[in-house]
Amino acid sequence: MSYKLRMKFIKIGVYIFLIILFLLAILPIWLLLVNATRSTPEIQQGVSLLPSNNLVINWNHLTGMGVNIWRGFLNSLIISVPVTFLTVYFSMMTAYAIHVYDFKWKKILYNIVVLLTIVPTQLVPIIGFYKYMASLKLLNSYIPLIIPAIASPPMVFFALQYLESTIVKDLIEAARIEGSGELGIFHRIILPIAKPGAFTMGILSFVASWNNFFTPFMLISKVEKYTLPMVVKLLRGDMYRTEYGAIYLGLAITMIPIIIVYAIFSKYIVSGIAMGAIKE
């Protein structure tokens, strides 16, 4: 077998493998959207890849359950948008400081960031956090869900890797010689250069905050302040346990902002991750 023929077979094999991965990734989403159009008896009969005509009925069930899903939608936006900005801004600033400045314990600080990155968030002492927020009278408040976004070790680590592969320190030194302050350098030079990485961090942070259920569930007890994942959880009560079509429709609605964000900024995800993976 010639070299060109072998390469052709390898290329075909790679395409087949990627198509299989694509189908495995998209199939659960497609089934969710299909089930949102099916009735409960149709869902109980088994899996179907074709949409049905029960979407309007499911919508009527969803809005007739006494659950304000649009309020949950707004509450999730109120939390996710500031969380995204705080995470991106302060993570990029922290990474910039670690990358550019030479100071004592710099290596130790970097190792701490890496260590916190690999520690699962489930290991965080949530009971102690709950008691602390209760002592500050911040239960049923969005503050404990937004302010901690300032400290995000995984995003700091990603930003640090990205800056190491894109930022030239000579450019920073030239800006200092011309009289630019440190904040001016960060805002006018670093952030524009790191825009793809910042967009990538923002998308990942937004998705994580939007899908967050556990922490809001621990801190918020007022129904009018429920986030969208918590509102969807209400649809699974005993009274409506058989209305699976409405439940699937509610889950599909939660995906709308994520799909929109990915559709608009997907090119930044690719370029941001690619640049962050390159080292000089």
Rank of each mutant, 00 (worst) to 15 (best):
L55Q: 05
L183I: 13
K137C: 03
M218P: 08
I118V: 14
L31A: 05
L228R: 02
F22M: 06
G179T: 01
E164V: 04
L138F: 07
D170S: 03
K4E: 04
F90R: 00
I247P: 10
I118S: 00
K11C: 06
I177P: 00
F85H: 02
K8P: 04
I247Q: 14
G245N: 01
N212G: 05
I43N: 00
I57Y: 15
I260L: 14
V119I: 15
K267L: 11
K195F: 10
P229S: 05
V83T: 04
I189Q: 01
G66T: 08
Y132E: 02
I79R: 07
F206H: 13
F103M: 04
V232N: 12
L18M: 11
M201W: 02
F73Q: 08
I253K: 06
I112H: 09
L49E: 01
M65E: 02
F90G: 03
F85P: 00
L116N: 08
T37Q: 07
L23R: 02
I256W: 13
F9C: 11
S205I: 10
A208V: 09
L109P: 00
L204F: 15
L50T: 15
N54C: 07
V34E: 06
F199W: 09
I247L: 11
L21N: 02
G46D: 08
I69E: 00
M239P: 00
I247E: 04
F85Q: 01
E173P: 01
E164S: 09
